[in-house]
Amino acid sequence: MSNKHSSPNLNTASYLIDVEPVEKIISVLVLSLSLAFNDIRNTFTFTTILFCIMCFVYVSIPSIKFLIGRMYVIIPFILFSLFLPFLSKSGSIIYEYKNISIYQGGLFEMSNILLKSTAGVAMAVALSSTTSQFDIIKGLERLKFPKIFVSILSFALRYISVYISEFQRIRLSMKSRGFNNKGLSDSRSLAYAGSAMLIRGFERGEKVYSSMIARGFDGNLFINKKKWNKSKLLYFLCSVALITNIISLSL
């Protein structure tokens, strides 16, 4: 079990930390969608959007080490894409050595997946390192997401940390009783721990609901009073990405 999910740390030194979350969410969406739906053979557009993304990531992260440490989720896909030039058989042969041959299409596909997936993950890391989880949800609320979804999301986020600490407590007590997770026969005790948590969670949900009713819950969860700044940089980056997209479409 990794502890990385539980502590997404904020970069308080960043310039983007006080910028309104809606702007950050929209710019992340615009930049990553326009990169993901572009062809890598469109060199000019692709490099321009990539440069915009690098600017955004550079402004928001504290150090390269931090970024690399949080990008562990795409390691399997990077490994897969490194094998692509040998697997994929399209285009002309560039290099040949005995039985192994490298194809041009395979190289393009490798760089395509490598660049797009790393850029996407880096954008998400940048967003979550300058915006706290609840600010992201406030942003979603201002973007007119359905009210039900916003409230479920905020409940889920609030209780994730609670259940993580409870799960760590359970694991500690299991370890102290001599439990080691080795074979399939041990999955039984893991499952019992999980179901104990599920039962407690369901009962807790009912209690929380009745206490919410007691305090007069009417469906509205947020009262947002904080003053946010506006950022010219984000406007600039988004408009550059959109304009290059339009140019490449019209050509």
Binding site: S154, F155, G205
Partner: peptide, 9 residues
Amino acid sequence: IAIAGMMSA
């Protein structure tokens, strides 16, 4: 709302 949030956590 409450139960769905808890369960997804």
